[in-house]
Design a protein around this nucleic acid. Structure first.
Lengths: 347, 347
DNA sequence: CCCCCGAAGTCATACGTATTACCCCTTGAA
DNA sequence: TTCAAGGGGTAATACGTATGACTTCGGGGG
């Protein structure tokens, strides 16, 4: 690194003809009245002239806090996490905290060489006061996923959308089961009896919960059956899975999809088979991302308050940092009925 | 903060019965052979036992580097930036760097209180070695947008998709103009003469460039005309703008949309007016995000190598950090012809 | 037998900041 | 005139790490 080193507070002090302490006093802006206005002015101007900005590493070391929180998500390519970040950043900013984002170390796309957790990834992990961990397979996973991130004297963690955790860590979850029940009730109310489930083959709590909830909801309704196929979360893979379901001899009259993108794949499968949505086939999604209203017909889905989750999660984390013990929270989803669901075709 | 403080290298040293230096020597794992295997083992086991992890702030202070890079984007809600991150993170990991993401401080959604740049937002900015700044209005904007982020002895910056910058900072851009020219040529080749431009009313270089390129491309072709309306980047707003264009007496036969999401709005406008895509109206997008293939018909668009941009940008930034001066790069877009474009309806 | 050398540790220090404890000087009251 | 009370500034220090300089010790060559 041939980098020219940045000016330090000592340089500013020298420039202003005062001591380093005074610079810190002025620029820190606590202790009002501690320094005379004239001196303060001269220090500020010197700092300005030199383009001084405090060295964060040194400050962090001294203060023992970074006022920065890490949001970890499985992938940034999913449209779902933008609002989560937005909500978290909004609350954080209000308390003087910053938010940085990273994907899980095991994100194969971003970390191909399988960098060990102790490796480069340690940096962002460590220079932070706490972690919002989103979309794990289980809340208890944090222990193994991120060494030293739970237990005594370690980084405080709040999990998002990762399932209830007993008293392990504070959690914020969606009411996924209720959402799936609402979808089931809606479809059955329309008259559907054979339902296909296009499941996401992704090891995250939320998808396990969605599958379980659908199974349970259907089991509670005599005369209703569900068949399941699974796929990756992309349109092409979803189209294939949906096609397999629609080519069965006992073709389902409705496809419940694990998220909106999968639903887009279901649309394509239906179209390829000459089936009209919704008159021949009802389709539902989950999440209500932007895609849901871009599709034609617009998608019946469950809206998850992603931004609210980010905000509540951050609130819980800040509570935790302040020594309080936040209660687990569950944010209800809301069924949004649009144009992709209708009664099944007459026999 | 009632946090129990974490064990330090001194604690580990005490536990293992050696000096702090030895601990650092062992755990740093440079200087092979500097410590006897037996001692090394005992140190490692002590560290394990105490759950020791080095304090990043202290390490950063000592080393003068964080081996962490900041990626700044306008918003995380746009599907475009996921791949950019992925590409950047992949290259960074290969060099032992981590990547954190933030949105620009003026992102109104995330920073409602208008927190001054010197405020909380300083934290993530500072604890990093360099910045990948994506999607500014102009490359020269970095100076004003992020104080102290350009000039001597300050944070190295590489701009992405923000326009050529003379010799100001290294840049990586898309060949936006070529992409727009390709779209124009494609449409004119199909026989279109009246083109509507649904422009994104967003102050970013890339959108200015798209508009300028279309204007220039059309101007070069006698007999071809373009009318323009603008909108925010969301489906509803785009639908309105497209509707306005389609209700003109000299209705265009093709709509060139500034990005794929806007194109989704154009689809909706067409449908609402009873126009079929593509037989009554051709529509083109830009970016080729996932949405493009989820739409029906699939969208003719220009594919931008977003992941490649992240990778090349990170490569340039690492070069810059190593004292080399990277050349500006331009990544060509590629016209992807799908089902949304066709010859105009016969008169 | 002496000297030198390498192996294996340890000591001391610097990184840049924030804050505590201290000091000096001026002013006002006794 | 003396002393207390601040106002306004500074020196010293600690945070935890990495590393260059130094020490110690045993062994081998001259």
């Amino acid at each position: 690194m041939s980098t020219i080193s940045r000016p330090t507070s000592r340089d500013v002090a020298h420039e202003a003809g005062v001591s380093q302490s005074t610079v810190s006093l002025v620029l820190g802006d606590k202790w009002p009245g501690r320094v005379s206005p004239a001196t303060a002015r001269s220090v500020r101007s010197a700092a300005e002239r030199l383009g001084y900005r405090p060295n964060t590493a040194a400050r962090n070391l001294r203060l023992g806090t970074t006022r920065t929180v890490l949001l970890m998500v499985p992938t940034l390519s999913a449209p779902f996490f933008g609002p989560v970040y937005t909500g978290a950043a909004r609350v954080a900013a209000r308390h003087g905290f910053g938010v940085v984002v990273s994907t899980w170390p095991d994100d194969p796309a971003a970390h191909p060489s399988g960098s060990p957790t102790g490796g480069p990834f340690a940096a962002p992990h460590e220079a932070i006061d706490g972690v919002l961990a989103s979309s794990l397979a289980t809340s208890s996973m944090i222990t193994s996923a991120t060494p030293g991130m739970s237990g005594a004297g370690t980084t405080p963690v709040v999990t998002l959308d990762s399932g209830p955790a007993g008293d392990l860590v504070p959690t914020v979850d969606f009411g996924v089961a209720d959402g799936m029940r609402a979808i089931t009730a809606h479809l059955v109310g329309l008259g559907h009896r054979r339902v296909g489930h296009v499941a996401a083959a992704v090891d995250q709590w939320t998808f396990h919960a969605r599958a379980d909830a659908l199974t349970a909801a259907v089991a509670a309704l005599p005369g209703v059956s569900v068949v399941r196929d699974s796929c990756a979360i992309d349109v092409a893979s979803a189209k294939d899975a949906a096609t397999r379901l629609l080519e069965r001899s006992d073709r389902p009259t409705a496809l419940v999809c694990d998220d909106d993108q999968i639903a887009a794949g279901a649309y394509k499968a239906a179209r390829a088979l000459g089936l009209d949505v919704p008159s021949d086939l009802s389709v539902t999604g989950f999440d209500d991302v932007l895609l849901a209203t871009a599709l034609e017909p617009e998608l019946t889905t469950v809206r998850l308050p992603a931004e609210e989750m980010g905000a509540q999660g951050m609130t819980a984390l800040l509570d935790l940092l302040a020594g309080r013990r936040p209660e687990p929270r569950v944010l209800p989803g809301e069924l949004i009925v649009r144009g992709s669901t209708a009664p099944p075709p007459a026999l």
